[in-house]
């Protein structure tokens, strides 16, 4: 092939990011360009697999495209972080479409400037997983020590009277086992990856939060490509790509959920009425968070949050109207 494009991400090669998302995408690009482009994928085990450096290495031009987590390092994409507000997003499809539409509508300001944005997406609504104290109501959260994935979730937990604890994924199992923490707030995917289902007993499915992800390309590199290659990239990115994440996350999450069921754990489903109450209780914290974003250069955070809520409702109706 005359052109080689390098893609990096921060997860192991066996993860769905590589198997279901990037490898088929790369193959599509190679086929569409009739072999003119060859794609090399660098996973977590490579020199380019550091989670906090995915976007930086694209900007530096060392890597052409990368998939990374918006929240690490923190505060890089302040406007996009609004998608991570508690109880905003429940499903990966609505969340991904919402984030992507906010970007297309220009609501995200300068968050991804200088990048060719191939896709933005979120995961499926995260759960509250606990050892032996089931979380059925807000009161149950009081005094629990829970491992938190992000500053937004930390703030939410604190406002409910829980103690958020920051831990790297590799320390989760041991700390659960010793009872240093009572549980954790995260996806099925991560719970499964750290084999925590064998320790946990309860999983409260409240669609508590989501994390945002990016799939970015170096703009200069994109501009330097021949027209047919640029066209091929555009055809398989953006709208058609963003639409696929709902299905993918269903698949990636299913494995962790099935494993929990196998261990005989209880999955506590929170109904929409209770979820709305929980969301109300956290409004002061959300207001404070949005206010804080102004100092980080976001012009009108309230408007973005407003628009995000509209979009989520719109996509939930489109995709999940028949779920209940």
């Amino acid at each position: 092939a005359e052109i080689t494009l390098k893609i990096s991400h921060y997860l192991p090669p066996s993860h769905g990011f590589q198997k279901d998302f990037l490898e088929p995408w790369a193959k599509q690009l190679e086929e569409k360009t009739h072999g003119k482009v060859e794609v090399k994928i660098y996973d977590a085990t490579s020199a380019f697999g550091k989670i906090d450096r995915q976007a930086d290495q694209v900007r530096a031009g060392v890597i052409d495209m990368a998939v990374g987590l918006n929240g690490i390092p923190r505060d890089r994409y302040p406007a996009a972080s609004i998608i991570e507000m508690p109880f905003l997003v429940k499903y990966a499809d609505s969340g991904s479409e919402t984030l992507w539409n906010l970007y297309k509508e220009g609501m995200l300001g300068s968050d991804y400037k200088d990048f060719k944005v191939l896709a933005l997406f979120t995961h499926e609504g995260g759960l509250i997983h606990t050892l032996d104290k089931p979380v059925r109501s807000l009161e149950d959260l009081k005094g629990l020590r829970l491992r938190t994935p992000s500053p937004a979730v930390s703030a939410m937990l604190e406002s409910y009277g829980a103690s958020p604890v920051g831990l790297p994924p590799s320390a989760i199992y041991e700390n659960l086992q010793k009872g240093n923490i009572d549980g954790l707030v995260t996806t099925w995917d991560l719970v499964n990856a750290v084999k925590a289902n064998e320790l946990l007993k309860y999983h409260t499915d409240a669609g508590a939060y989501v994390a945002g992800f990016y799939f970015l390309m170096n703009q200069k590199k994109f501009d330097s490509l021949p027209e047919d290659v640029r066209k091929a990239i555009d055809e398989i990115s953006g709208d058609p790509l963003v639409a696929k994440f709902g299905g993918w996350w269903d698949k990636w999450e299913a494995a962790g959920k099935a494993d929990a069921v196998k261990h005989g754990n209880e999955i506590i489903k929170i109904d929409d009425k209770t979820r709305a109450e929980w969301k109300d209780a956290v409004q002061p914290m959300i207001k404070e968070y949005l206010e804080g974003l102004k100092a980080k250069g976001v012009k009108d955070p309230e408007a973005i949050y407003q628009r995000a809520q509209e979009l989520v409702t719109q996509f939930d109706t489109k995709y999940h109207a028949g779920d209940k």
Binding site: F48, K50, R53, A60, G61, V62
Partner: peptide, 14 residues
Amino acid sequence: WSSASYVMASLPFE
């Protein structure tokens, strides 16, 4: 050089 220096630049810190 550009890849090597970019990756190596983080190694001492990390």
